[in-house]
Structures are given as C-alpha cells and as structure tokens.
Design a protein around this nucleic acid. Structure first.
Lengths: 362, 362
DNA sequence: CCGCCCGTGGAGAGCGCTCTCCGTTAGTGC
DNA sequence: GCACTAACGGAGAGCGCTCTCCACGGGCGG
C-alpha cells in the first residue's frame, strides 16, 4: 500500500531520503544548501533527487517557512477615468473594452511595468501574481490575499490619485512598494520619476526650437504625476518670460488628448508648440493637428512624455521625455524583496531622472 | 506563552474555534460551506471569525487539498522574431526594449488576453501567475512550477510555432489549455479563431470595394495563424478570379509591416488594396503608403486583423477583422477550470468566428 | 590517555488546515 | 416505549516540509 501511495502522488522528501539512504533532514539540508553536509552524501542526495524526479512541494514549504516566495503585482485605482470602473462585476468577465483591465492594458505603460518586474523577479525564481483592485471589494480581496500568505508582498501601481489601497496595506502591516508617490503620505516605499524635471526638459526643448506660443495638455490634475508635469512645464515657461500657458486637462488616454487638442486649437489657433503629459495624448494631439491642416512639426511642434512603444512607431516619430519605466519597475521590485528580507528596514524612495528623446515631432 | 504566540502570528482555525466554543472541524465546515451545521452555530462561528480577524492560511489548505487554487498564465515561444530571445538572461533584467517580455507587451494582443483571463478568474477568487517561457530553461521552470503544485494548471499563449511547451506539459501529465492550435498535434485543449474565415471576410470586403490589385502582408508562415490567414485570403481571391496575389511576409510587428509594405510597393506600385494579417502591420503599411504619397483609403484600401486597441485609434481608423480575444481568453480559462474540476474530461477545442469591422481605411 | 569540542546526521515536533471516522443527540415509525 | 435512523459536531490523523534539538564520533589539547 505504501507503494501504491508512492505511485499515485509526486515523490516526497521521504522518498528521496529512502533512495539516498539518509534522513529527510539531510535531504532538506542539501536542497536548501544549509550547513555542512559531507560532499559524498550531497552527491548521493542529488542523485536520488534526479532519480526520483523530486520537486519540493511549495505548499508544505510555505506552511513552515511562512513565506510564499511570491509577490503580487497589483494594478490599483478607479480606472483611467476616475469613476468609470465601479461598474457591475459581471461586465469585466465578458471582457468588453471598457472594463478596467482592458483600459489598463490599452496603455503600453503597464506592459513596461510588467517587463521590469518580471525582469527582476525571474532570475530569482519568482513570478508575479497579477491582481486588479479597482473597487473596494477588490481592494479587500488584495489585502486578504496577502494576509492569508498567498504572497509575501505587493507591488502597487495606482492609476488613481486617492487610491486607498496603499493605506490599507500599510495599516494591515503588509509589505508593499509603490510605483509613484501616493497622493497622501503613507509609510510605504516607492519609486518615482522627477516629473518636473521631465517637463522642464520638454519646455526647454520647445523654447530652443523657437516656439513662442506653446500650450500643454496636462494629465489628470488629481494625480501627483499629472500635477507635477504641469507645474514643471509652467514654471520653466514662466522663467523664460512666458507667464501664460494655455492648459487643457486630459486623462492620459489618446481620446482625451484629441479632445484637449481640439479645445486648445479652438482657443489658440496660432499655437506653434504643444507639450502633452504623455505619449498617448500627444498622439491624439498629432491626429487632431493634422486634421486641422497643421503639419507636425512644421506648423506645430509636439512633445510627449514616457517614450512609450507608440512614440517611435507613430508618424512623425514622437519627441518625448523618456521615463525609464522598466528600470523603475525593477527597482520597485528590488525594494520589495529587500523589505521582505529585512522587514524592519527603512521606508525609502528612489527617484529617477527623465531624459529627453528627440525624434521628429519637435 | 500561548498567548504570546497568538499575539505574534495571524489567528488560526484553532483560535476561531476557541472563540466560538466549537471544534476546529466545525469552523472549517462553516468556512467551506460543507454539510449541515446548525444555523445558530454557523452564526457564532462567523462572529468569531470577524472578531478574530481570521483568514485561512493558503499554504496549509493547499497542503491537504492538494490544490493551489491558482493558475499560471504562460507566454511561451521564442519571441516575435524566432531566434531573438535566446539572449543572455541578464539582459531581460535590465528591462531593455528588445527583451522578450518587452516585445510581448508591446503587442496590445496580450493585454487583451490578460483582460479575458482575469475577467473569468476574478469572480472565482483566483488570480493568474504571470510566467514567460522563451528559453528551454524557462520552460523547465514552468513545468517545475506546476509540478510542485504552485499552480493547478497553465494557460499557454504561444508566440512561436514549434513551441515545445505544450508537449512538455502534456507529457508531465499537467493540466493546460492553449490559445491557438499548436503547430504539431498535442493532446491538450485549445481555443482558436477561424482565421481563414476572417481572411475571407477581408478579401470579400476589398473586392466589394472594387479593389482589383490587392496584395497581402502575411504573418510569420511557420505560425498556424499566419498560414491560415494567408490561405484564406488567397483562396477567396482565387475563387473570384484573382489567381495571383503578391505576398510579403511579416512578423506581426509594426516594423515588419513597414518593411513588407515597402517591398510590395516597390514591386507593385499600382496596387489598390492591402490585407495585413494583423493591425500592427496594417498600421506600418499605412505609414509607408502615406510616405509614398498614397492616401488611405483613397488610393489604397487597407484591412487589418484583430481589431486591437490601435485599430480605432489610428488615422484613418482601421477597417479590420475582429478577433474576440477577450472572449477567447475567458473561454480558455473556463476550459482549464473545467479540466481541473474533472481531470479525466475530454480534450476539446473551441473555435470562434471572426467579424468584419468596417471603419475608414477600407 | 582522557575529556572536550566541533562537525555531522538523525529524530521528531510541529506549521494550519481538511476530512474521515465516530459518538452523541433528537426525531421517527411501529 | 423501543429500536432505528438521520443530523450534527468532536477527535485526531495526517498533508510534506523545515528546523531545533540531540547523539555520535573523530581530532585535538592537556
């Protein structure tokens, strides 16, 4: 009967130990590389492992180590448009294009975050669990998921300013690192970009090109990043004598960029430069400008932000402010793993410097 | 000391049982909704649960149920360009844009897959673990991950024709469902699209528009989908008397679409219609056409494939063949969960019908 | 030559949960 | 009023692993 059981399930430590003629403890030591085990025995154990085709059972290990060796990658917030996502739960299941997850992945930005996270995690034998937290129930699920030990910590990317998730996680004493500084202070580490510097770069470039009548399409102003990019742009312009800069607020989507551009063009038909707070909106702006008979960059110079995959691919290729999203995401992941290794470590922030990428649009 | 221990860790079943004045078993029954438990006791237990703030420990549960209640979402293959991805492991960590994961997420297609998968999984309290398998070592890791019970099954999206992962998984007796039929037969369920029908739709639309000199930018011909779309297009054209259709092979990337379009235009400057096997390539084709002074759709009509997020966003908005990726991904997930519920269920395939979406480009 | 220490490996106690047995009680038919 | 049954709840045995003890033996100093 013992044999029957063995045949049925996967081989266990016990099986390997028997095959190698040692105890479970010794096999465990070899596998986890702990303490000195006689090289001869080590070899015997390794043999036995490959003979039996042993794979450690993750659940059993987690149970005793109290670590899942997994992290959650949480996309949090209330959708690109603040209130749009509190829709019926059922809608998401049908996968329609308006759902939160659909909107999230329409933005190449998240793909880059995933790339950075996976790039750091993979070499360490870990993989992210993808979660979405766009409703309060979903946020509770995320917290519960972490509390029940399914993941050791969370990487949180908020799309929404007042996202309560970071605070919830902090209160529950769970490990997390954020992408971007939270709107209201929370004792959690984060990575971020020097948004103002990026906007300054864009402003200076437009000025250097000779643009005198520039406008800007900002991001949502309740998001710190949206706010900072606007401030940085305005300040730089002011410092160069341009006291007034027309602003139209967008939502980081291409469509909102189009709408904003229409508005700006209606009010200021003579503008010769536009700074859009992200590439998607810059793209929308380009389309609208062309439809109104303006050539880019001939009549109007356009600068985007992010250097997303769309930037080099569109026509004309977009001059933009590069945000090293992949590196930032990797750093975010590093911070989290650090935190897991030393739970009482300090709460820190790492700010990255943006870089101007000059292409054809400005 | 017992109290100290309790204070330290999360509350356990034992704690709840004590608080409710019942046994562990009863609490377990209530939580898992098994068998009849006296409503009064049920209520008492639920009280105790909320008082103690109890959350079941996933690892402990997995250990005994032998289920992880998690599935892996594996993006598999050798990258968009067959050999490009066997690069040094380190490169991926730096998150450069050429890495496999970066290429994968540059295509909005994967975002839609994620949307569909998550849409189905979430209402069931599950979340996907994101994995990449672009090298043989990575493939082994995926298999090991499943074998050690970290996930109950895998959703596999191959970007590469001869992807050995499905076979590896099948051999190991692990549960999986594929997105798209594998190039060589493997006893694993899959969902797919009637690619040929989609291409037929595109061909008929171009013909109905009056195009007489159409060409096509195919996908990679070692991928079943690429092959089928080409065959479908050619067959329909042939049935309508167009024996010869110029073909340029692309790789499903925008850049390869541009290159292909250049080639086609050089050889057939008079063409008046193009069918690209996906939207990204159609986009590239549009750019090249415009650069060569051809208007779309005035001079050349362009039809894409997928109805990705780029299709409605570009100028002119792309006429394309809609692939219900989200629904397909949801169905793939359903098939996997079915399989997990009944491991000896049949291996099936579900084929979806495409749909023509007429916009402005053709 | 004795005792001590260190290197090494085994024994065994759980980690928190599920689930199979049972024992107990209340409800039912004859 | 008695046996039988059904409904319910408790006891306890693990699931596979880690890790703390502890036993053993050999090398070394005294």
């Amino acid at each position: 009967m013992t044999d029957d059981r063995r045949a049925a399930g996967a081989p266990t430590l016990e099986d390997v130990a028997r095959a190698a003629g040692v105890s479970r403890a010794t096999v465990s030591r070899v596998i986890n590389g702990i303490r000195n085990v006689d090289p001869v025995i080590q070899e015997a154990v390794r043999q036995a492992v490959s003979v039996t085709g042993y794979t450690p059972n993750r659940a059993a290990r987690s149970l005793v180590t109290r670590r899942a060796d997994a992290v959650a990658l949480v996309v949090s917030g209330a959708g690109v448009e603040p209130e749009a996502a509190e829709e019926a739960e059922g809608a998401a299941a049908s996968g329609d294009r308006g759902s939160f997850t659909a909107q999230v992945f329409a933005d190449p930005f998240f793909g880059r975050v995933v790339t950075g996270v996976v790039g750091y995690l993979r070499p360490r034998g870990m993989h992210p669990v993808l979660m979405f937290a766009e409703s309060s129930r979903a946020r509770e699920e995320v917290v519960a998921y972490l509390r029940q030990g399914s993941a050791d910590g969370a990487l949180v990317v908020s799309t929404h300013a007042e996202d309560p998730l970071p605070a919830l996680i902090a209160e529950a004493g769970l490990a997390a690192v954020l992408f971007a500084r939270p709107a209201r202070p929370v004792p959690v580490s984060y990575v971020d970009l020097a948004h103002q510097d990026g906007a300054r770069l864009a402003a200076e470039h437009l000025l250097a090109r000779g643009c005198r009548r520039t406008a800007t399409i900002s991001g949502p102003l309740d998001v710190p990043a949206g706010q900072a990019r606007l401030t940085g742009f305005r300040d730089t312009m002011a410092r160069h004598g341009h006291a007034y800069v027309p602003v139209a607020e967008g939502q980081f989507t291409q469509e909102s960029g189009e709408v904003a551009m229409e508005r700006l063009l209606a009010q200021h038909p003579d503008l010769d430069g536009v700074f859009a707070a992200n590439d998607l909106m810059a793209l929308g702006a380009c389309h609208v400008l062309r439809e109104h008979g303006r050539s880019v960059p001939g009549d109007v110079a356009v600068v985007g932000f992010d250097d997303s995959s769309a930037a080099p691919a569109c026509r004309p290729p977009l001059t933009t402010v590069r945000q090293p999203v992949e590196q930032m995401a990797a750093e975010m992941t590093r911070l989290l793993l650090d935190r897991l290794a030393r739970p009482d470590g300090p709460v820190t922030s790492v700010i990255f410097e943006p870089e101007l990428v000059v292409r054809d649009s400005a």
